[in-house]
Simulated assay, not measured.
Amino acid sequence: MKTLLDIKQLTFAYAQQPLLQNINLTIDAGQVGCLLGPSGCGKSTLLRLIAGFEQPQSGTVMIDHLQVTGDHHMLPPQQRQVGMLFQDLALFPHLTVQQNIAFGLQHLPQEQRRQRTAELIQLCRLQKLNTRHPHHLSGGQCQRVALARAMAPKPKLILLDEPFSSVDRGLQSEMAQEVKSMLQADGSTALWVTHSLEEAFAVADQMGVMLNGQLLQWGTPVELHDQPASPDVIRFLNQANLINGQLNPESRLDTVLGTFDLCNADQFMPGDILQIGLSKHLLQVSTPTEGSKAIINKCIYQGGHHVLTATLTNGDQVQLFHHQSIPVGQSIQLKVSNPQPVLGFAIS
């Protein structure tokens, strides 16, 4: 598959304060990449570097095998063939839907401009709205107009900066899937920035977690969910529990939840204190005669299941899902179903 976006060792500082450190990622043509991270971690700054609004201290950005940034070379934003969908959408209030979409097509002959605009109005389901102005549209309709405008010139890459930050959480996943289907139908490649796990897992072909200006992991959603590369990724994704243990002479990790095989046991010495991540779905309430003791701290109903928070005998806190309510303060037994080899992490 053809690589469309290739970023290598990208570093950026502002007023001598480092904001991005050695960022490496690739996105294949026709795919959607998602960057996850808390506010202030550098996600939007990375988009600005790709678009050409900022210049990095070092590193390269390649778009469709053309170097647009690097080696003291910086291609102007208007020559990068990059479209951008901003948080505030930035629609022109005095222009109609049709005029907003056609705004970036002034360089085309009139007939081609008309055809491309009509194509996007159809693709984004705006047929009955093309003569309306933005203040007569719903939030979701404005999102579709802004996306159509970004796609109109057929840029090689579209950057989306938290496009659903103002949308109700329950609608984020649905709207994200809708936007992804439009991008795919138009053959677009995109880098999508968000702090919403639900949104990212709904659209990403590849995704990564950023924290304090560093890209901690970049891979498929399945890889990040099933094989998180660090405790920080585990904490951010909140899909697994961090459990402490000690490596025994057989290079297996002894924990209060049992003994586990490690994928990377050769990196450690017997006696080392390590952490592992165990998916919340692997923890089960067991019969009184098996498993490890824990005390229930919280029990929250989440529609169809309860989320239990419990404290293990060594003080570690874990979360798991259970079909029925268990009173706070009650003692239970926990076991791990179908344990697989896991990555061990040194405790810093």
Rank of each mutant, 00 (worst) to 15 (best):
Q246S: 09
G245V: 05
N241Q: 05
P153L: 02
G277T: 04
F268C: 04
Q267M: 03
E250C: 02
D71T: 00
Q319T: 06
V145L: 09
G187A: 02
L36V: 01
E111R: 13
S337Q: 09
L334W: 12
T313A: 12
Q110C: 00
E54F: 05
P221H: 11
L105G: 07
D161Y: 14
H65Q: 15
L108T: 03
S279K: 10
A190K: 07
I121W: 12
P76Q: 03
S181C: 03
M74W: 15
M207W: 08
T194K: 10
A148F: 10
Q143H: 14
M62F: 13
G37V: 06
R116Y: 11
P76T: 01
N297Q: 14
G329N: 10
Q81F: 00
N130A: 04
D226T: 14
D64N: 15
P270R: 01
C299Q: 11
A118I: 00
I347K: 15
A310V: 12
Y14T: 00
Q184C: 10
K180P: 15
G33T: 00
V318Y: 10
E174G: 01
Q239W: 10
L35I: 07
Q81K: 13
N241I: 08
A148Q: 06
Q16E: 10
Q31C: 02
N212Y: 12
Q239C: 04
V203C: 09
S348M: 05
V233Y: 12
S230C: 13
L85V: 14
P231C: 02
A148C: 04
H281F: 01
Q284D: 08
G213F: 01
E178Y: 12
I158T: 14
G104A: 14
Q143L: 03
T309Y: 07
R114W: 04
F53M: 13
L95R: 15
M210R: 09
I276K: 07
F164K: 07
Q275T: 03
I158R: 13
N24E: 11
D88E: 15
R252P: 07
F236H: 11
Q217Y: 11
D316C: 07
H281N: 04
L282P: 09
N338F: 13
P231E: 03
V203F: 13
T45E: 09
G33S: 02
M74C: 11
T69C: 14
P38A: 06
L191N: 07
D232H: 08
A176V: 00
I158M: 10
R144S: 05
R80W: 08
A152S: 00
V82K: 14
Q267P: 03
D205R: 04
T45R: 12
L75I: 02
P77G: 05
P231K: 05
P288F: 03
G37Y: 11
P341I: 01
N100P: 15
F268Y: 15
H323M: 06
P288I: 00
A190T: 02
G304M: 06
P228V: 00
K293Q: 13
G70K: 12
I23T: 10
F321T: 04
T287N: 08
Q99H: 11
P270H: 03
Q98A: 03
T313W: 09
G344D: 04
A176G: 13
D64I: 02
L343K: 14
Q16S: 05
L66E: 13
D28Y: 07
F92C: 14
